[in-house]
């Protein structure tokens, strides 16, 4: 295979960092919004926009974290059930152990980090392919969530203010739920990490050419573990938000969320073969997914067809990505 030309392409696109794909994704988002606004008068109301943003948060934050992993050329299937485990652990810390809410939240996020670390360790130290390592983690997290919670939901109803972590509003006067603010905050944190720090540079370097990165003296194994751990922190944040919004930790949810998150990443222009991608793209990808679902629902399109449409959108997104690569 033309491995060398592919690498050249990757390096070139690293320079312009997939700006075209992002613009394309952003343009599709705008087109969708215009289309749905015409199709339904209720689409562009403020409370619906708020609803769309709120429904983006959980999948969106998962997608942000997993973007890092996908840029390294890996994949993380453990984020869906991993998120469930972090919300269950948050429940254990706060409800069962009676720890303060802040400690519980931190505990939940650290649980996510631990899941990410184990996945990263398996990938880099044990040399298990990411697909398998994180598939295993997915099952482990799913099982542990059920075991730890005794297979029944943990309720936060008696925890004053827990619901407000996601649904309250820190900015007085404007009704933007905190979960949405946290999502955008995570976009900014992720963006800084990915484009302004050494972690980001190595993330791209590993994804573009792992061997060359290793030969230039970078401890690839260590950095991979760090990257998976960062992704795990994002999973933890998503878990806490999920728990807060539902005011309960639901141990049976989460399966399948990883695929929605990966779809958002791909729609956002991050290449599954690694070395290329952006968090702004992922944010737009996640927004496209929720605008689509919301818009199709508001038009009362039957659910079966909604899924079909989203499937086609993913196909299109990847196809455009391939076209662009060819042209470069």
């Amino acid at each position: 295979m033309a491995a060398t030309t592919a690498n050249n392409n990757k390096q070139k696109s690293f320079a312009n960092s997939g700006a075209l794909q992002q613009i394309l994704a952003f343009a599709s988002l705008i087109v969708l919004i215009i289309f749905f606004s015409i199709a339904s008068e209720n689409f562009l109301s403020w409370s619906n926009i708020e609803g769309i943003l709120l429904s983006t948060t959980v999948i969106g934050i998962l997608a942000l974290g997993t973007t890092f992993v996908i840029i390294t050329g890996g994949i993380d299937l453990s984020i869906g059930t991993g998120m469930t485990l972090t919300s269950v652990m948050t429940g254990v810390f706060i409800v069962y152990l009676g720890l303060p809410v802040s400690v519980g939240i931190l505990g939940g996020i650290l649980t996510g980090a631990l899941i990410g670390f184990i996945a990263g360790f398996s990938v880099s130290m044990l040399r298990i392919p990411p697909f398998i390592a994180t598939l295993a983690m997915m099952m482990i997290a799913e099982g542990l969530s059920l075991v730890i919670s005794g297979a029944s939901p943990i309720y936060f109803s008696d925890v004053e203010g827990f619901n407000n972590i996601a649904l309250g509003s820190v900015i007085p006067g404007i009704s933007i739920p905190n979960a949405v603010l946290i999502f955008f905050l995570m976009v900014i944190i992720g963006w800084i990490l990915l484009s302004k720090t050494i972690v980001g540079r190595y993330t791209f370097a590993i994804g573009s050419n792992e061997e060359a990165t290793r030969l230039s003296g970078i401890n690839v194994k260590k950095w991979k573990m760090i990257i998976y751990t960062i992704a795990g922190c994002f999973t933890g944040v998503a878990g806490v938000i999920m728990a807060s919004r539902l005011n309960s930790a639901q141990p049976a949810l989460g399966m399948g969320y990883e695929l929605e998150a990966i779809a958002a990443v791909v729609i956002g222009g991050t290449s599954l073969s690694g070395g290329k991608g952006s968090l702004i793209g992922t944010m737009i990808g996640a927004l496209i997914m929720s605008v689509l679902t919301n818009g199709l629902r508001i038009m009362s399109i039957p659910q079966e067809w909604q899924t079909v449409v989203i499937g086609f959108v993913i196909l299109l997104a990847v196809y455009f990505d391939m076209l662009r690569k060819k042209n470069e």
Partner: peptide
């Protein structure tokens, strides 16, 4: 006016019920 399916998933059902009320 509408029938939608949320798979019994709390979050999914929340989002879709909200959309129904918007519509």
């Amino acid at each position: 006016v509408d029938t939608q399916y949320g798979g019994g998933d709390h979050l999914e059902s929340t989002n879709l019920a909200k959309t129904m009320m918007q519509a």
